[in-house]
Nucleic acid binder design. Sequence first.
RNA 1: GGACCUGUAGCUUAAUUGGAUAGAGCACCUGACUACGGAUCAGGAGGUUAGGGGUUCGACUCCCUUCAGGUCCA
Length: 589
Amino acid sequence: MDFILKGTVEAVKALYNTEIKESDIALQETRKEFDGEITVVTFPLTRLSRKTPEQTGNEIGEYLVSHLSEVAGFSVIKGFLNIVLSEEFLLKIFKEQLVKENFGEGQPNGKKVMVEYSSPNTNKPLHLGHVRNNLLGFSVAEILSAEGFEVVKANLVNDRGIHICKSMLAWQKFGQGETPESTGLKGDKLVGNYYVIFDKEYKKEIEELKAQGQSEEDAKKNAPLINEARQMLQKWEAGDEGVISLWKTMNSWVYAGFDETYNKLGVSFDKYYYESDTYLLGKDIIEEGLEKGVFFKKEDNSVWIDLTTEGLDEKLVLRGDGTSVYITQDLGTAELKYKDFNVEESIYVVGNEQDYHFKVLFLILDKLGKSWAKGLYHLSYGMVDLPSGKMKSREGTVVDADDLIREMVDTARKRTEELGKTEGFSDAEKEHLYNMIGLGALKYFLLKVEPKKRLLFDPNESIDFQGHTGPFIQYTHARIRSVINKASHKDFSFSEIGSSLSSSERELVMSLYKYPEVISAAAKEHSPALVANYTYELAKLYNKFYHEEPILKVEEQQLMNFRLALSQSTASVIKKSMKLLGIEVPEKM
RNA sequence: GGACCUGUAGCUUAAUUGGAUAGAGCACCUGACUACGGAUCAGGAGGUUAGGGGUUCGACUCCCUUCAGGUCCA
C-alpha cells in the first residue's frame, strides 16, 4: 500500500506545506463494519493541519481521490480516514499479481541463516514439549526460506553426559541383553525405560542410606548407583572401549527411534552436531577472553565474566579445575557453527527456561568482539504444561510424541469415517488422508499460539477439528478444489466481470494481496502464529464468499471465470501458507 | 536476595506494535437456498483485558505498584 503512504505525504505537503516521512503515517486495515479497505489514522496529523481530525481526514481524502486513480472514495469517522479502493485497481492487482503461479514467493536475498532446533537428549523419547520445539523450528525455517533466505536446519544432539550413563548403567545391570529387536520396542523408548529404572533403583538406595542415618543430601551423593554412573562417565571420557561401544550401540537405538518420530512429524535437518564432538570446545575462547581482559580469574583459578554493569551477575565460564560448564561449550559451538556456514543469522529454538543462559551467551560473544554475535537470536518459547503441572520424564507424566500422533490420526480416521467421505479412496490414500488431517490438527493447534506463550494441553480434551483449526482450513482447500474440478473448462481468464465486486469478493482479494506482507512479518518476528492466523482468516473469508456468491451457477461466463480464478488463487495461497506450517492440504476429504 | 516470562469471555486464543464499539473458535441458544462439499454459513448470549495508580487527544499495548502462576542466576 505504498501509494497510499506516498499520496498522503504529498497531500500533507500540498495542504499543510509540511514535509513528513512515510513512517510517520499509521495505516491499518479498515474495520469490517465500515466501507473501505485501508484506513489512515489522522489524529497525529492534526498537529500539522491545525484542524479537527474530521476536517483533516476530509481534506486528505479529497486530495487522494482526485490525485490517485487507485482511490475511488472515502469516509471519515472521527480520526479515521477510510479509503475505498477502486474496482479497477483491485481487478488489476488480481490479474497482474494474485493469479500468478509464483505469487508471494520471495526472491533469494543472498543471506544465509541457521535454525537450530529439536536438540534432544539421547536418554529419553520425545514428548509434547519437543513436538512444539520441532514444529516451531521447522516452520520458522520454512518461513525464512519462503522469504528468500538460504536456510540450514541444524540439530545439536546431547548425546553424552551423566544422563546417558544412567541409562547405560541400568541397562547393563538390569537389561539382560534386551534390544529393540528382542522387545519390539522403539529404541528411544527402550533406552528411556532404563533411564526410569535407574531413577527408581537410585531412589531405593537413597531410602536405604537414609534409614541407616544419612542425611538426604549425603545419601544422594553416596548411593552406589550414582557413583557407578559417574565412574562410567569418567571411563567414557577416557575412551574406555567397552563403555564407548555400549554408548554407541544404545545411541544408535535412540537415533533409529528419533528418526521414526521425525519422519512422522515431517521435520528434517541439514546438519547434525553432536555434543560428544563439541563438549571440549570453547576453551580457547576462554583464553582469548582472558587476553582481551573480558574475563578475569579468581584465586581458585576459575574464570568469570562480570556482567553487573549490564544488570546481570558475575558468571562462571570455566571451573577452577579447568573443566567446562555449559556455557563454555556453547561459546565454542557458536563459533564452530559460524565457521562451518558463515551465516548471517543464527537462531536457537530453545525453551524459555534458558532465557538467561542465552542472554549471557550472546552478551559474552558480543563483548569478545565477534562480528557475528549480533546475528544470534534465541527463539524462546513457553513450556507445554499439563493440567497437573509440568511434564516430568522420570515420573512418567509426559505426553509421548508417538502416542499423541497416533491418537490424532486415529481421531481423524474416526471423524472421517463418521462423515462417510472417503468413497473412491484406496486404502493407502485413506491412510495418507488420516495422517494429513490428524497431524494438521495437531500442528495447527501448537503453531497458532504465539511462541513465547506457555501452552496448556489437556490430554482428556481432544483437539478440535472444527472452527479455528487445521482441518477447517484443509476442508476449505478441498472444497475449493472440488468446485474447480467441477468446472467444465480450465481457462479462467476474463476481461470485464460485468458487475461490481461484492463485499466478500473485495475482502477476499485484499486478504490474498496481504499474503507476502504476512510472510515478511512472520520471518521478521520468527512467528509461525502469524501465518497460522492469517490462513484461518483467509479460509473463513472464502467460506463466506462461497455461501454468498454462486460460482458455477452464474450465467455470465466472465463473472464465473473471475470467481473461479479467485477460488483458485485462494486455494493456492492456502496451500502455500499451510506448507509453511508443515501442514499438507488434501484435494478431497 | 536478584532477574526474566505469562495473566484477555466458562475454556483455547487474536488485536497490524499507542488507535475506532477488544476480534475469533469451542461449549450453550436460534436460524440457513431441498448441499456448486453442512468438518460450512448467518445470528444471540458471554469482557472492569488479574487489581490499583500514572503518562496523553487515545492504553490490552508504555511507566510504577500489588496479586497469581511459572522459570532462571549463586
